[in-house]
Write a protein that binds this DNA or RNA. Structure first.
Length: 182
DNA sequence: AGAGCGATGGCCT
DNA sequence: GGCCATCGCTCTA
């Protein structure tokens, strides 16, 4: 695919309509990306705003690596790093439309409804079986594939969710009217 | 050394 | 819509 992982906002748009699949011993799981958010080091809402630390080091790698972080004492979220090494920018994957390994995702989530599987950043990490141990790996080394399925006709842009700084920046992108958007 | 808090989700009303 | 569980990281002292 022709994803360049150039800048976080551009990549956040490009990722919509791409199928993200994580391959594990239990089987593949994944879905089509329908909601993303962009974060950069010049952005007060970003984990990388105050420079590199042990926690966020993965986000300072080159585009195409992944950054997984732990938050709220119980949840993990998954980002695809963008830009060049040292930039500290990436795209938070917020929601997927389930397509691959739906029964396995139901087991991991202990939920039946499709809309309960991957309709949020921490939900999709659990459904796909992504772990913090994969943070800092390349997509390929993390056994994650990306493949474009379609080009969304109607991409909506809004402020990001759940943040307290830079609350108005229009850096959330989603497929309008898709039922799996969080 | 310790307090404060978070790129959330689930359950209750 | 609102509340709160839960804990590692960051900042301040």
């Amino acid at each position: 695919m022709q994803l360049g992982f150039d800048s976080a906002p551009e990549t956040a748009r490009q990722l919509l309509g791409c199928e993200l699949v994580h391959f594990t011993p239990e089987g593949p799981t994944g879905g089509i990306i329908v909601e993303t958010e962009a974060y950069s080091s010049d952005d007060a809402a970003s984990h990388t705003y105050n420079g590199q630390t042990a926690r966020n080091a993965a986000m300072f790698k080159a585009g195409g690596h992944i950054y997984v972080y732990f938050t709220y004492g119980m949840h993990y979220c998954f980002n695809i790093v963008t830009g060049e090494e040292g930039n500290g920018q990436g795209v938070l994957i917020r929601a997927l439309e389930p397509t691959v390994g739906i029964d396995l995702m139901r087991q991991r989530r202990a939920k039946e409804a499709l809309t309960d599987l991957t309709s949020g950043p921490a939900k999709l990490v659990q459904a796909l079986g992504i772990t913090i141990a994969q943070s800092g790996l390349s997509l390929a080394d993390a056994q994650i594939s990306l493949k474009r399925k379609f080009t969304p006709k109607d991409i909506a842009v809004s402020p990001r969710r759940g943040i307290k700084k830079a609350v108005d920046a229009p850096l959330r992108f989603y497929v309008r009217d898709n039922p799996f958007v969080s």
